[in-house]
């Protein structure tokens, strides 16, 4: 892949851009559908997250990093992971404060569920949404960091990148009071 130079960059990019633009919304819709219909059909927060992330990745490929990261919330992907985790933990922990075991979902078994269209409003869905957020954030964040690192590498390849070298004979630590490990 990496050795295959795009022979006709203009045409490729125009084609890709068009397709990417066309596919963007449908992909996101698919992802959301996978998420909320997960209780009836295969698919859950994880799959939805990856699909959603792949949709956005396509924008990366087509429009480049700068443009893609301007999409709403994409710039906060890494932080989204932890926002998702907090929501998930909230779902897990709330019942404890209500005197129930962890992860008791509401409404409980047998109780009727409020529907919004065909979507069931249950706390398990909230949990799945959290997972969705996290996975999407993870994929996007990971890719962003790799892209960032590649960019940095291209910009500057030098000794700084290797960090402080180990020097056993001198025994002087660059970092003060790190002391431990090998001296």
């Amino acid at each position: 892949m990496k050795n295959a130079p795009a022979r006709t960059p203009e045409i490729t990019s125009v084609l890709v851009r068009t397709i990417a633009k066309l596919l963007f919304l449908p992909i996101l819709v698919t992802a959301v559908a996978m998420l909320i219909k997960g209780y009836a059909q295969p698919g859950d927060g994880f799959s939805a997250g990856v699909v959603g992330a792949l949709g956005i990745l396509l924008q990366y490929l087509a429009f480049g990093r700068r443009t893609a990261e301007r999409l709403p919330l994409v710039g906060f992907a890494g932080k989204g992971v932890f926002a998702g985790l907090l929501i998930a933990l909230l779902v897990a922990a709330t019942p404890v404060f209500l005197g129930q075991p962890v992860f008791t979902h509401y409404p409980p078994a047998g109780a009727s569920v409020i529907y919004v269209g065909t979507i069931e409003l249950i706390t398990a869905l909230l949990f799945d949404t959290a997972v969705f957020l996290m996975v999407m954030g993870f994929v996007l964040g990971g890719v962003q960091m790799i892209a960032q690192t590649i960019a940095d590498e291209d910009e500057y390849r030098g000794p700084e990148a290797t960090g402080p070298e180990f020097d056993a004979s001198a025994g002087t630590d660059v970092e003060p009071s790190s002391g431990g490990g090998r001296r």
Binding site: G38, Y39, A40, Q41, P42, G43, D44, G45, F46, A88, L89, V91, A92, V102, F103, H105, P107, A109, G110, V113, E120, I122, A124, L125, F127, D128, V131
Partner: peptide, 21 residues
């Protein structure tokens, strides 16, 4: 009882949600 049709999803998000967490 978990308001789900897909058992796998129910396991992941409800029965064994702790694993997923």
């Amino acid at each position: 009882d978990a308001h789900a049709q897909d058992t796998v999803s129910a396991i992941l998000a409800d029965f064994r949600a702790l694993d997923t967490l």
